[in-house]
Design a protein around this nucleic acid. Sequence first.
RNA 1: UAAACAGGUCCCCUUAUCGCGCUAACGAGUUAUGUUAUUGAGGAAAGUCCGGACACCAAAGUGCAGCAUAGCGGGUAACGCCCGUCUCUUCCGCCAUAGGUGGAAGAAGGACAAGUGCAACAGAAAGCAAGUACAGGUAAUGCUGUAGUGAAAUCAGGUAAACUCUAUGCGGUGAAACGUCAUGUAAAUCAGCGUUUAAGGGCUGCACGUCCAAGCUGAAGGGUAGGCGGUUAGAACUUUUGGGUAACCUAAAGUCUAGAUAAAUGAUAAGGAGGUCUCUUUGAGGCCUUACAGAAUCCGGCUUAUGACCUGCUUUAAGA
Length: 129
Amino acid sequence: MSSKFPKKEKLKSEILIRGIFEEGKSITSYPLKLIYLDLKAPAKVKVQCGVTVPKRNFKSAVKRNRIKRLLRESYRLNKEQIFNNIEGSFAFLFLYLGKEMPQYEEVEKQMRVILKQFLIRVTNENPIK
RNA sequence: UAAACAGGUCCCCUUAUCGCGCUAACGAGUUAUGUUAUUGAGGAAAGUCCGGACACCAAAGUGCAGCAUAGCGGGUAACGCCCGUCUCUUCCGCCAUAGGUGGAAGAAGGACAAGUGCAACAGAAAGCAAGUACAGGUAAUGCUGUAGUGAAAUCAGGUAAACUCUAUGCGGUGAAACGUCAUGUAAAUCAGCGUUUAAGGGCUGCACGUCCAAGCUGAAGGGUAGGCGGUUAGAACUUUUGGGUAACCUAAAGUCUAGAUAAAUGAUAAGGAGGUCUCUUUGAGGCCUUACAGAAUCCGGCUUAUGACCUGCUUUAAGA
């Protein structure tokens, strides 16, 4: 499993994103928050992932871009543990809740925590047959 | 030496590993996917304040209103931008005067003999109500002159970043414009027939004017979500020739220079370079690479934010 993050794994559909906010479940590990949604219908990729930073907390577009890149990078390097251990397909949306500029180490640490919790929860809900 | 002002340059670099967007080639040959190569943020990309290009809107109508501009000349696709110049104002210097001259900075610099309004102090009075002293004059009277107040006195003057007038310009909406493909069920669209002019809607705010609108027949296909085009070769950039005080124009040669769309341009490591601090004065070590800030149809300006370096010049402070 390579640690690539191509275009088709990005969450783009407006319908899906609206659905995530309405029906998704969430895991929080400050300053990150993951909202996910089980897509039920089989898709080409296991996970479609999007990243967002609220404009309210970071007025500067440069800072928002920076945080989004950090989130994407940490997801890219750590998504392997998810891809190898889940069934079905999911939509992910990562939110950054903090109000200070983070360091990469901090982001990656919390990313790992979140992904581990997600795995635990999903395997409990849908035990592999 | 520091600060301010004006102009210019730059926005760390290289390599390796992992990764992202566009494009091209190869493989595949419809797509998907893979490999390789090229390339990938700014001087303000920002604010969206002006001016255009481009696109559409029912005849993009007419009048009024509204808005903008305001010496003169030039530049430009165009401008409210830029350049030159005159005039005025302020400050400084000199000559030495009630002015001249040099420098710097600034100017929303058309018209107050069309009308309306406003005006501190003084003054009887700065328009509608009056009048002091002296002299002249009359039937009589501020009727006339002088004095007095003031920058200005039944006569003008000042003021238009006061109304206003004059001249010139301005239709509206903005890439979520607009075109197109596939899907394809309407109350929505188009064409023809046709009705009432009552309400409503549209055409810029208002008025006029004008268009639409019930129903029937036919055609074509809408909305929502999505793909593609528009979409990056251009009023482009670089270097030189010639013209011009300058803004800028002209000619030649060369270059291709981001095109994302929940939105690419990143992460880690090493080295170099630069800055700064400490020890010390060959040198070593630590820290930082920082400011403002992220293209979204594209240009020309303006405004605002802001780091480093260089050049010029002026004033102030310090030193000699």
